[in-house]
């Protein structure tokens, strides 16, 4: 009956790949839709990386604001990335993972600043770390933190 477990294992991988592809695609599209909508809504909040405020700003109140998120990639994309790691080259399937995480973190920071009544965020920085580093030689999920100084006039 050894062959049954082999067949079962192959089926399981195929099932996970299909689940990952289907749901992962769905989730990603939905996420991008909310990202685009919120970027539109928060478009009037200026986010810059410069350290110095313009002279005209005067002496506004400042507050440290941050936003962070952990996003994981689906089974299908991870599988393709593992294949890619055998051959080398650009890992397309992880591009959207880090892109989504970074924009989501930025949006959360902006939302916090907006709630404080800020109009600008200065000296914005990103910090990226991988959660499951060292496990199964994979990246899998990343955490992105965006932080900066909210300027409240």
């Amino acid at each position: 009956m050894e062959y049954l477990t082999e067949i079962w294992q192959i089926l399981l991988v195929v099932l996970l790949l299909m689940l990952g592809y289907g749901f992962g695609r769905l989730a990603e599209r939905r996420h991008y839709r909310t990202i685009l909508r919120r970027e539109e809504a928060l478009g009037d909040l200026i986010v810059v990386c410069s350290k110095t405020l313009p002279e005209a700003a005067g002496a506004p109140a400042t507050r440290l604001v941050m936003g962070s998120v952990v996003v994981s990639v689906d089974y299908f994309k991870r599988f393709v990335a593992h294949l890619r790691m055998l051959f080398g080259g650009r890992v397309h399937t992880y591009e959207s993972l880090v892109d989504r995480a970074r924009r989501e973190a930025l949006l959360r920071m902006q939302a916090e600043a907006k709630a404080l009544g800020a109009t600008m965020i200065f000296n914005t920085r990103f910090e990226t770390s991988s959660i499951s580093k060292g496990q199964d030689k994979s990246v899998g999920s990343v955490e992105v933190l965006a932080y900066g100084t909210a300027v409240i006039p």
Binding site: L17, Y21, F76, K77, F79, V80, L83, R84, L86, F87, R90, H92, T93, E95, S96, V98, D99
Partner: peptide
Amino acid sequence: INVSRHSPLAEFFILS
């Protein structure tokens, strides 16, 4: 710009 447009399914079949 940061996310290239390509088909992950095609990449999967070519690589595997």
